[in-house]
């Protein structure tokens, strides 16, 4: 199991653009520490559409060059301490977005299109700080109608955690269909799962409807409770106490380092 995680991490390189999901959609916390231990640097993270603990840990460990996101926070546990400190110090570049723009960029890539137009945004400082987003006059309208073009987002890699996969590499994402565009848009997709099941998830219409087919999946590794301390939909709730423990510890870099080395010994949660 650890070797499977290591095999995935061996495919990741410094400088890669990596897409990761929002805290409730299945975050591969199981891959976070191996990524840090591999000494990855200069990662450009794309949060789909917001980030949390995983992003904060990667930033705290010095793995990150930029974060494109609509928000980063630890939810109920408060602000993301290492991310916030890094923004203040200017040690990472933050590329502020808004949630539907991140989705739009991935969907543009999913379609092989150069961009997707999106309403809203005009007059915001979000748009003012995004030279890569262009405002055009809607060519299909007779009247003046400015609209924003969101360029396609092409991550090198997408990483997430799901409840199960089969040995063919089909991953069950259930109703979390927003995970699929991440995989469509990314060159490679690596998934950790709570369990590998026998048989073929596509053989049954009920499970098949919720499957991300192996076509889009580069590798799967089994990692029971691999979203912890985040929860996994339909499986287990978030461990809010642990998130709060992290939030308190990571207020300082020293506290963060101590938390990371302490918890390194613990391995998987009970």
């Amino acid at each position: 199991m650890q070797s499977d995680l290591k095999r995935i991490v061996s495919k990741l390189h410094s400088g890669m653009r990596i897409a990761v999901p929002v805290d409730y959609a299945g975050v591969s916390m199981a891959l976070t520490r191996p990524m840090i231990e591999a000494g990855l640097r200069d990662l450009d993270l794309v949060c789909v559409p917001t980030g949390g603990l995983q992003v904060d840990m990667l930033v705290g460990a010095g793995c990150v060059r930029s974060v494109e996101t609509s928000a980063v926070s630890l939810g109920e546990a408060g602000g993301a301490p290492r991310f916030n400190a890094a923004v203040k110090e200017g040690s990472i570049k933050v590329i502020d977005a808004t949630c539907p723009a991140v989705h739009a960029g991935l969907i543009a890539a999913q379609k092989g299109s150069p961009f997707l137009p999106l309403r809203g945004l005009i007059g915001t400082d979000v748009l003012a700080n995004r030279p890569d987003w262009k405002v055009i006059d809607n060519p299909l309208s007779d009247q003046k109608d400015p609209v924003v073009l969101i360029p396609a987002i092409h991550p090198d890699v997408a990483i997430f955690h799901a409840p199960m996969a089969d040995r063919h590499g089909n991953v069950w994402i259930g109703r979390r269909r927003e995970l699929a565009p991440m995989a469509y848009a990314a060159r490679e997709t690596y998934v950790t799962v709570d369990r590998i099941v026998e048989g073929n998830l596509l053989a049954d219409e009920m499970t098949g409807a919720g499957v991300l087919p192996a076509l889009y999946v580069s590798a799967v590794a089994e990692a029971p409770k691999g979203a912890w301390p985040y929860g996994l939909w339909g499986e287990y709730p978030a461990d809010v106490d642990e998130l709060k423990r992290y939030a308190a510890a990571a207020r300082t870099q020293e506290g963060f380092d101590a938390y990371m080395s302490e918890t390194a010994q613990q391995g998987e949660p009970a």
């Binding site: 917001t50 980063v72 723009a101 005009i122």
Partner: peptide
Amino acid sequence: DYPQVKVRWPGSFGSAYLYFV
């Protein structure tokens, strides 16, 4: 002063879109 703000909050979330529609 953005981007190196003195106090950073989580971010705009979906507000830059929902406020319009």
